[in-house]
């Protein structure tokens, strides 16, 4: 499934970590831990292919992602630190665009349902610039409900700015995805109420 070995990450002229290995099987929930600045987000970007490692290789289904990036991207959902919302568009327009741009064929009704499920049914027609931080985060997370067919979810700090109920709901969604055979890799500083104990990868252990 998702494997990486001997990864090294260079940021500017500083080596963040080296010799990092990870393995994520179907049904796996992997939490990337470590203090601020240790390279958690950089690791996620290496895994998604957005950045290239200084050394080592990331493999998806036993094929290096450098040689076949599209194979990974067809099955990957990555939600980064920035929620990828345009302030001039409504949450519904943003979500429909995000799905279509990723290559998913999702109709408007499914998007409305997903937004309602994540608690934004009253904000469907508001421009994104009037939403609160937590609500903006939720628009991005609504894609989770529309991406069940993508097995690998890579999430950068998904719990930031969410209220307690939303954290519980999100943790349940992630656990369900793993139970259905999906894979989740995430960074967080919070203790989310997962129904299973996540594997922990401490990036600090590989720091230079």
């Amino acid at each position: 499934m998702l494997e990486a070995h001997d990864l090294a990450c260079l940021k500017g002229d500083r080596l963040l970590f080296r010799g990092l290995a990870l393995r994520l099987q179907a049904g796996g929930l992997l939490r990337v831990a470590g203090p601020n600045g240790v390279g958690k987000t950089s690791l996620l970007r290496l895994v998604t292919g957005l950045a290239l490692p200084e050394a080592g290789e990331v493999r998806w289904r036993s094929v290096g992602i450098r040689s076949d990036r599209e194979a990974l991207h067809r099955e990957l959902l990555y939600l980064g630190h920035a929620p990828a919302l345009n302030d001039l568009l409504t949450p519904l327009e943003n979500l429909r665009f995000a799905c279509a741009a990723a290559g998913d064929d999702v109709d408007e009704q499914s998007c409305v349902t997903a937004l309602a499920r994540i608690g934004l049914e009253n904000q469907l027609d508001l421009p994104a610039r009037v939403l609160s931080q937590g609500q903006r985060r939720r628009v991005g997370l609504a894609r989770l409900f529309l991406s069940a067919r993508r097995p690998l979810w890579v999430l950068d700090e998904p719990f930031t700015a969410l209220d307690v109920a939303a954290v519980a709901e999100l943790a349940a969604t992630l656990s369900d995805h793993c139970d259905a055979g999906g894979m989740v890799m995430l960074t967080t500083h919070q203790d989310a109420p997962f129904t299973r104990v996540p594997d922990v990868l401490d990036v600090g252990a590989y720091a230079c």
């Binding site: 990957l76 990555y78 920035a82 990828a84 302030d87 995000a98 741009a101």
Partner: peptide
């Protein structure tokens, strides 16, 4: 706003 990253992952 991060849209470009998402497009590159399309």
């Amino acid at each position: 706003d991060g849209t470009l990253e998402q497009l590159l992952l399309s």
